[in-house]
Computed example of a mutant assay.
Amino acid sequence: MIDEQHNPWQTLSKKEVYDNKWIHVEEHEVIIPSGKPGIYGMVHFKNKAIGIIPVDDQGYTWLVGQYRYPLKEYSWEIPMGGGPIEQDVLLSAQRELKEETGLTAEKWTKIMRIHTSNSVTDEEGFVFLAEALSQGETEFEETEQLAIKKLPLREAVQWVEQGKITDGISIAGLLLAARLRGI
């Protein structure tokens, strides 16, 4: 039987490979679980990943579309962004929803904590369901050129099933939100 609390990895040394205001990359010299020497690259994100699924009284949600530079393709996603590590994730979610959709919400429910790619990063993400919505003006960041689409939550789930949405946080969040709402 495996002891879930036992760490079979041993870190011998680590060195910084790259650093900017969003990420920090390290290379670790390690002893791997088999007892042999190895290396491990790790990306530390300087923000938490924050995703929001706004749903109105009629069951509609909002997606945002944008060109994703690393993928070299357009991506439809739930409203999302980064929240400072030290900041309450709810405050970050409220800011991101307003920035990207212009929406504010009276009711917030944290529905998910997720690790985005636990084989190479320690990034932690959170997804919120936002309800009792009011429409206002967007406040895009200078790096954002977003399209906004309002559609039934059921249709957003169909986009996941059809492969039109490929972002992991969006997929997980939409599927859980639909399940929680009985869709």
Rank of each mutant, 00 (worst) to 15 (best):
T121I: 05
L180I: 11
K110R: 15
I2H: 07
I171L: 02
L63M: 13
V55Q: 00
F140A: 11
F140K: 02
Y74K: 12
E96Y: 12
E124T: 13
F140C: 02
S134N: 14
G102R: 07
E86D: 13
I171W: 02
G81Y: 00
K110S: 05
P37W: 02
V64I: 12
L180G: 05
K21E: 14
L91D: 15
K98S: 11
T104D: 14
L63G: 12
V25Y: 04
T101M: 06
P70V: 07
L153Q: 00
K149F: 08
A105F: 03
A172N: 04
T116A: 05
G83F: 01
Y74H: 15
Y18S: 11
S119T: 12
E139P: 00
K150G: 08
P33Q: 01
M1W: 03
V127I: 14
S34R: 02
V25Q: 06
L71V: 09
H28C: 13
I23D: 08
I53A: 11
Q94G: 07
Q145K: 10
L151H: 01
E29S: 10
K72E: 13
L103M: 11
K98C: 12
P54K: 03
L133E: 01
A177G: 08
D57T: 11
K15F: 04
G35D: 06
V43C: 09
E26C: 07
A172I: 06
A132M: 12
S34W: 01
K150E: 14
Q66H: 12
H115F: 09
K110W: 01
D56M: 01
Y60N: 15
K48I: 04
P54M: 02
E139R: 14
G59N: 01
G41E: 02
P54E: 05
G59E: 06
M1T: 11
E131L: 06
T109Q: 15
S75A: 15
T61W: 05
T11D: 04
P37R: 14
I32C: 08
E16R: 12
Q58A: 13
E100Y: 03
E144W: 13
S170G: 10
E86L: 10
N20M: 03
W108A: 12
W159T: 01
E141Q: 12
H115R: 14
Q10D: 02
H44N: 05
G163Y: 00
G35A: 06
I50F: 04
G41V: 04
T109A: 14
G136P: 07
T138Q: 09
E4S: 10
L129H: 08
G51R: 07
L71Q: 08
W9V: 14
T116E: 01
T121Q: 04
K150T: 05
Y60F: 15
V89I: 08
D56T: 12
L12F: 06
R154W: 00
E86V: 15
K72G: 10
N20K: 07
M42G: 05
W9G: 11
N7F: 08
D122Y: 09
D122W: 00
T104L: 01
I183F: 03
K110A: 09
E99C: 04
G65D: 01
G182S: 06
R113A: 15
S92G: 11
